[in-house]
Design a protein around this nucleic acid. Structure first.
Length: 255
DNA sequence: ATGGCCGCTATGAGCGGA
C-alpha cells in the first residue's frame, strides 16, 4: 500500500502534472495541500476517472487540503473542530485502506515577528489536541502534510543560513516535536539515517539545481503503521521541469 | 544587503508562500 503527500501549489495549475504522476506512481492514498480552490472548482471528475475517491476542504486563493484514495473515504472530517471563527482550510481527515489519514497544511508563519508566527505555534498545539481528542497512538494512523517546519538541522541545506529563521526556529521545532510526542514516527527519517534530502526548493534562482532545499513535508506514522512501513522516499523527479510545484511528493510504502 | 519565482486575484500590482 502506497501512501503519498504532496503540496501541489494549486490543483488547477497542476492538474495535468498530478494526473501524470498518479498514472506513474499509482499511490493508493494521496494527501494534497495548497489546492487553492473552493470545493466546487476542484477537479474531482478527473481524479475519479483516474480511479480515486476524493474528499476536499478548500477555500478561495489560499490553503486547501484534500485526500484521494482508491478505496472509499469514511468518516471525513474537516478542520480541527475547535474554533468556528478559524475559517482557514488546513486539515482534513478520513478513514481509508484500514487506517486513519490526517492531511494538514500547517501555517507558514511568515517570520518570527509576524502575528502569523504565534498563530502557527498555536496551530500545532491545536493539532496535537485534535489528535488527543479524536485518535489513539495505538491505532493505524498517518499524519501527512506540509508541516512548514524542519524537524532538525539534517533537514536544512544550510543550517547556518537558516538558523532562527522561519521553519527552523527552536519554538517551531519544539512545537513539531510535541506534536510527534503523540506517538508518531517520521517515516522518512526512520528509514534514512542522517541523509540530507529535501521536499521543498525555492522557485527563485538555482535553488533546486543546487539542491538548496528544506524537508518540511512529512509522513508521520503511529507504531502499528510504522511497523508495516518498508520504505519512505521523496520523489525529487516530480520537482523537475516546467510547471512543477515547489514541493516534491513524499511516498511511504506499507506492507 | 537585497532580491531573484510562482499562483492567486471582482488582476494589470500586491500578497503570500517558504
Amino acid at each position: 500500500m502506497k501512501l503519498a503527500t504532496w503540496n501541489i501549489n494549486s490543483i488547477r495549475a497542476r492538474e495535468e502534472r498530478l494526473l501524470t504522476w498518479l498514472g506513474q506512481e499509482k499511490p493508493d492514498v494521496l494527501c494534497l495541500q495548497e489546492t487553492k480552490v473552493e470545493d466546487a472548482g476542484f477537479p474531482i471528475a478527473a481524479l475519479r476517472k483516474a480511479g480515486y475517491e476524493v474528499a476536499t476542504f478548500g477555500q478561495r486563493s489560499y490553503n486547501g487540503v484534500a485526500i484521494a484514495s482508491t478505496q472509499p473515504l469514511a468518516d471525513v472530517t474537516r478542520g480541527l473542530g475547535d474554533d468556528p471563527a478559524d475559517d482557514e482550510a488546513r486539515a482534513i481527515a478520513a478513514t481509508t485502506h484500514g487506517m486513519r489519514v490526517v492531511c494538514v497544511y500547517v501555517p507558514n508563519g511568515q517570520d518570527l515577528m509576524s502575528d502569523r508566527y504565534p498563530y502557527k505555534l498555536a496551530w500545532f498545539r491545536r493539532l496535537r489536541a485534535y489528535l488527543d481528542r479524536t485518535a489513539s497512538r495505538d491505532q493505524p494512523l498517518a499524519l501527512c502534510g506540509d508541516m512548514n517546519v524542519t524537524p532538525d538541522d539534517r533537514d536544512v541545506w544550510s543550517p547556518e543560513k537558516w538558523q532562527n529563521q522561519i521553519h527552523c526556529s527552536p519554538p517551531e521545532r519544539a512545537a513539531l516535536a510535541e506534536l510527534a510526542a503523540f506517538g508518531l514516527i517520521d517515516a522518512f527519517r526512520h528509514h534514512h539515517g542522517d541523509d540530507k534530502q529535501y521536499s521543498w526548493w525555492d522557485y527563485r534562482g538555482v535553488a533546486f539545481f543546487k539542491n538548496q532545499g528544506l524537508r518540511i513535508d512529512l509522513i508521520y506514522l503511529t507504531a502499528p503503521l510504522a511497523a508495516r512501513c518498508t520504505g519512505c522516499t521523496i520523489d525529487r523527479n516530480a520537482r523537475k521541469g516546467q510547471d512543477a510545484s515547489d514541493h516534491a511528493p513524499v511516498v511511504a510504502v506499507m506492507a
